Simulated assay, not measured.
Amino acid sequence: MESPFPTRLRAARKAAGMTQQQLGINLGMDPNTASARLNQYEKGKHSPDYQTAKRLADELGVPVAYLYCDDDLLAELLLALVKLSASNQQELLDKIQKSV
């Protein structure tokens, strides 16, 4: 099975309204190579190490788990969950645990 990382990274970057170069520069990459490096990640030719993936996720405002999630519904749930306050997240978790 192919890694969902390239597709999820591209979707998160576009949702954030950033170009590959902007994202790379925001992470401290050299402006001359930022776009090419992000392009390699988005095409699946290279995979970033976990620390880089975490920095990408943080910059894009998504949980790092979203970038690796191979289930579309679960990925969308992750995005929705991070928008909730911590207390609402806990409340939802309590409800889910009671219904399982």
Rank of each mutant, 00 (worst) to 15 (best):
R13G: 03
S87E: 15
P63G: 07
Q97V: 15
D70Y: 12
L9H: 07
A16C: 08
L92Q: 07
Q90N: 14
L74I: 11
A11E: 04
S85K: 13
E42L: 10
Y50D: 08
L56M: 12
N39R: 12
L60M: 02
R55G: 01
E76W: 11
V64C: 00
A12D: 05
E91V: 11
D70W: 04
K83N: 13
F5Y: 11
A15R: 10
N39D: 11
L67I: 09
L67F: 06
L92Y: 03
G17E: 07
H46Y: 05
Q40C: 07
D71T: 03
N88D: 14
Y50W: 14
A57L: 02
V82E: 12
I96T: 09
T52A: 11
A12T: 06
N26H: 15
D70H: 15
L74T: 14
D49V: 13
R55C: 01
Q97S: 13
Y66V: 06
Q90H: 11
L56A: 01
D71S: 06
D58H: 13
L92R: 07
M29F: 15
G44N: 08
A57M: 02
G28M: 04
A15K: 06
R37V: 15
I96G: 04
S47M: 05
M1C: 05
Q51E: 14
R10A: 10
S85Y: 03
Q20C: 13
A15E: 08
R13Y: 06
P6T: 05
R10Q: 14
N88F: 03
D49R: 15
I96S: 03
I25Y: 00
L23H: 00
T7S: 02
V62R: 07
L38D: 06
T7L: 03
P4R: 06
S3T: 14
L27N: 04
D94Y: 01
L93V: 13
T19V: 02
L74N: 06
K98S: 12
E76M: 13
E91L: 11
N26S: 15
S85H: 12
G61M: 09
L74Q: 09
G61Y: 01
D58M: 07
P31F: 09
E42P: 06
L9E: 00
L27H: 08
P31V: 01
G44M: 01
Q21S: 10
L38G: 00
L81S: 10
E42A: 03
A34F: 06
F5V: 13
D94C: 00
Y50E: 08
K83T: 09
L81I: 15
L9S: 01
L60P: 01
L38K: 00
D72L: 14
I96R: 05
E59V: 01
Y50P: 03
L74Y: 10
Q89K: 07
Y50H: 14
D94H: 06
A65V: 14
A53R: 15
Q22Y: 04
H46G: 00
Q40W: 02
Q89Y: 05
L93W: 14
S35V: 04
A80E: 04
Y50V: 14
A75N: 03
A65G: 02
L74K: 10
N88Y: 05
A57Q: 01
K83R: 13
D71A: 06
E2I: 07
L93Y: 12
S85M: 05
